[in-house]
Amino acid sequence: MKLSLDRNELWRGLNTVLDAVASKPAQPVLSNVLLEAEGDRLTLSATDLDLSIRTRVIASVDTPGRVTVPAKTLAGIVREWPDADLSLALEEGRVVLSGRLGANNGEGRYSLSATPPDEFPEMPDALEGLTLRFGDGSGLDGALLRTMIEKTSFAVSRDETRPVLNGVLWRIEPELMVMVATDGSRLAEFRRSWDSGQAVAQGSAEIILPPQACAELGKLLEDPDSLTEATLGESQVLFQIGDTQLLSRLIEGPYVDYEQVVPRDNDKRMTIPVEQLLPAVRRVSILSSSYTHQVRLQLKEATVELTASSQELGGEAREVIPADYSSDEIEVAYNSHYMMEILRKLGSEEVILDLRDSVTAAVVRPAEQLEGEESYYLLMPMRPSA
């Protein structure tokens, strides 16, 4: 194998696949990146068996070939290499990087141990399952998928005793797409519907995306227009994003029946600007308990009073701010961290909180939503502490 390419191209490829390299590999080869040189492309692949990423970069290939090398070592060298062309060659079982170090800075040569690619897991080019096509003018595009992930994935559970809650539910129907995440203390749902007859999928599917796949999609979709296709299989999902493919193993379901916990008769509504409520919660929470992070809200006619206290610090906080509220007086308490996360994700100037009592979940919605989109959040209350 022998080729030359621009350092920036090589770094872009390595940086794309690096997160899929196993941090604690079950097999030594999983700490490597697979390099495949052919035609005018260098293909880089990495996997930890749950997540696999493959991408292609432009290269001038003199001799085709395949080899694996330690991924993080190679990335460390290329990260520090100056902005210049470099050469990659397989010589006597070792991969050699060489090239000029800029116009007047001499030259460098690095030699890395190489491993034959035979034991490196194969990544399929395609899957059997429901295929979604993005960017065809139907409103189903990379920007929508990225928004849905951003507005829900933060609510996944970290408790590994309930694996289904560790991921994001993605439900697809011909004229509907829904994403849901919950950890039992909060819930996030985002749905996008299309008019009757405007089908965006030729069937239905329901999968649970692992959080690592969601995080990687968020990075790869910095250019949302690059997403062209996704195939939802029985146990895996495959995304085509420009010259990059992302393959993820799915979390086995079924997902919890979350709709049964959504309150339907919350009859007390408060509307307030996010830029008013969020800073108030942030300030008051400074003196909340370091264990519960509890902030109490006392809703009265046209105002909301926020209080917090900390036995560890021996301090108390209190703020009263105006709000659009005209129902009966009520006191509720929430985890301030969870509340602030939801307020940051709303994407709306005002927030609507629908409440019933101190033991029923609050339904939190953005006051403004785009046509065809509907999102809401559930925030479970805490027992108000003195």
Rank of each mutant, 00 (worst) to 15 (best):
90 L>C: 01
186 R>D: 07
167 G>D: 05
140 L>N: 03
160 E>T: 14
46 A>F: 14
44 L>D: 01
169 L>T: 07
46 A>V: 12
48 D>R: 01
294 Q>H: 04
107 E>F: 13
203 G>I: 05
72 K>G: 08
318 R>F: 08
31 S>C: 07
123 M>Y: 09
8 N>V: 14
345 K>P: 04
94 R>N: 08
148 M>E: 08
165 L>P: 04
221 L>W: 03
276 Q>R: 13
65 G>M: 04
175 E>K: 15
94 R>T: 09
383 R>P: 05
247 L>D: 07
296 R>I: 03
107 E>K: 15
357 D>L: 04
235 S>Q: 11
55 T>S: 10
275 E>W: 07
208 I>T: 11
66 R>S: 14
148 M>T: 03
354 D>A: 14
316 E>I: 05
277 L>R: 00
368 E>W: 11
13 G>A: 08
364 V>G: 06
157 S>G: 12
175 E>Q: 15
136 D>M: 05
355 L>Y: 13
381 P>I: 02
235 S>A: 13
233 G>M: 03
140 L>E: 01
213 A>C: 11
133 R>Y: 14
43 T>D: 04
171 R>E: 15
223 D>K: 15
375 S>E: 13
366 P>D: 06
46 A>E: 02
266 N>M: 12
45 S>W: 08
339 M>T: 12
313 L>T: 06
139 G>K: 05
39 G>W: 09
280 A>Q: 02
300 K>C: 10
157 S>A: 10
253 G>T: 02
85 D>A: 11
363 V>T: 14
354 D>I: 09
365 R>E: 13
243 D>F: 05
